[in-house]
Design a protein around this nucleic acid. Structure first.
Lengths: 186, 186
DNA sequence: ATTTAAAATTAACAAATGTTAATTAAGAAA
DNA sequence: TTTCTTAATTAACATTTGTTAATTTTAAAT
């Protein structure tokens, strides 16, 4: 399975662990716009995008805000819920027709006890997410919206497949501001 | 040791593991303003604040920007370096006279191999940091500077011990803007 | 205590981003 | 295609935040 070789590239686990882990992995397909996890739910599934694009979003003052985009091989979890067990005001939605690998979190965490190396693999995977959060923090803390947009253009393929309203809220600005920035650039 | 009971409250490890871990823990004192880790270095130490206040900071366009504050029992690491091995443009500085527990990261990671439960303990500790990063992201993405300041006031004791210029950059605004916000509040 | 340097405030003006509303463009459904 | 709905753009004006510089306050050093 493609996912297992991706995992291998992060940290190689024993064949036995690999066997146990692969039995937890299922595939799910979602069509464009479809909700993968409802707002307000608990995060009890670790998703990894196989193909397509998904986003984490929430509502604030009636606005729809995108917190995160995920592309191929990206994890997509609502960590503030997965790690605490608390419900989260955030949901997950497919932006394109999207296939994800899904791993039940309770079963996964149970496997951690039996296989030290599975816990390590996922520790390393989540550490990458952690670093991503920090990078994003840096850009939101002290870059102008225009610079954040230019960085996003530079670093993110598939960007043209994402509705601009989602990009705007991801950047922390209104859609109108993003339009203005785009017109300044050209 | 106080630190070990704090660790116990997060995840209880075996006495043997506890023994091994405690042999790695040293204490260091830093006086106000003193640099704990230089900008540009690699993060090879996990610090936990015993008492006092420390910050993670970096320079951007000649400005000093505070990315993070740490108080008693808070971890303070430059995760983007600790988890990747790369140098980081960030440094660590004591804001008050500060005592930290220091754990050498290389030795710690070596212990992970021998003690599954030590790896788990630190996984859980770093997960908390990860969740903190996400919370901070939310506030920077779509709250006004005034709301961010009010939240900080509400949630953070000792805030009055931190120079306003550090608070301003932490909030992603200039010191002048923070002064303006403070005068509006009263 | 006095002096000195650094931090915080204030004010005036500039730039960036938000808000509302109208218009155009794009995409989905029939 | 044609129609209809949603997304994106544009414009005008409001608000927030930035910039510079002067002033006051606070804290450090002597």
């Amino acid at each position: 399975m493609e996912l297992l070789s991706f995992f291998d590239s992060v940290y190689k686990i024993t064949p036995r662990a690999r066997e146990s882990l692969s039995s937890l992995i299922t595939e799910k397909e979602y069509s464009k716009i479809e909700i993968i996890q409802q707002i307000g739910s608990r995060c009890r599934t670790v998703y990894i995008v196989k193909r397509g694009i998904a986003r984490i979003f929430y509502h604030k003052d009636g606005l729809d805000i995108t917190e995160h985009f995920a592309f191929s091989n990206d994890l997509i979890v609502r960590a503030e819920s997965l790690f605490t067990g608390e419900p989260t005001p955030k949901g997950i939605q497919a932006i394109e027709n999207t296939t994800v690998y899904a791993i039940d979190a309770v079963s996964l965490f149970a496997l951690y006890d039996q296989h030290h190396d599975i816990e390590r693999l996922f520790r390393l995977l989540f550490e990458r997410e952690h670093v991503n959060s920090i990078k994003r923090l840096e850009s939101l803390q002290f870059q102008s919206a225009k610079d954040r947009y230019l960085d996003l253009l530079k670093n993110t393929d598939y960007i043209q497949k994402i509705p601009l309203k989602h990009i705007a809220s991801y950047l922390g600005i209104t859609q109108v501001s993003l339009s203005r920035i785009r017109s300044e650039i050209r």
